[in-house]
Computed example of a mutant assay.
Amino acid sequence: MTAIVVTLATAIVTAACTTGLTGAAAVDDRPRFADQEAGDRVVVATTFTILADMARRVGGDRVRVESVTTPGADVHQYEPSVDDLKRVEGADLVVSNGLGMDDWLLRFIDGTDARHVVTSEGVDPLPVRSGNYTGRPNPHAWMSPDEGTRYIRTIALALADLDPDGADEYLDRAETYVAELDDLASRARAAVAEVPEERRVLVTCEGAFSYLARDLGLEELYLWPVNSESQGLPRQVTALIDEVRDREIPAVFCESTVSDAAMQQVASETGSRVAGLLYVDSLSAPSGPVPTYLDLLDHDLEIITRELTS
Rank of each mutant, 00 (worst) to 15 (best):
T18Q: 14
T19N: 11
G23K: 03
A25Q: 05
D29G: 12
R30D: 15
P31A: 10
A34T: 10
A34W: 12
A38Y: 13
V42Q: 07
A45P: 00
T47L: 02
T47G: 02
I50N: 03
A52I: 05
R56E: 12
V63C: 07
R64D: 00
S67R: 01
Q77I: 15
K86L: 12
E89F: 12
G90A: 02
G90E: 07
A91N: 02
A91L: 01
L93A: 04
G98R: 01
L105R: 03
L106F: 13
L106P: 09
L106K: 12
I109C: 07
G111A: 12
E121D: 15
D124T: 12
P127A: 10
G131D: 04
G135H: 12
P137C: 03
S144L: 02
P145C: 05
L159M: 09
L159H: 00
A160V: 10
P164S: 00
G166F: 01
R173H: 07
A174C: 07
A179K: 07
L181V: 11
R189S: 08
A190W: 10
P196T: 01
E198S: 14
V201T: 09
T204I: 08
L223F: 02
V226R: 09
L233M: 11
D246F: 09
R247Q: 07
D281M: 02
S282T: 05
S282F: 06
S282V: 05
L283D: 04
V290G: 00
T292K: 01
Y293R: 07
I303R: 09
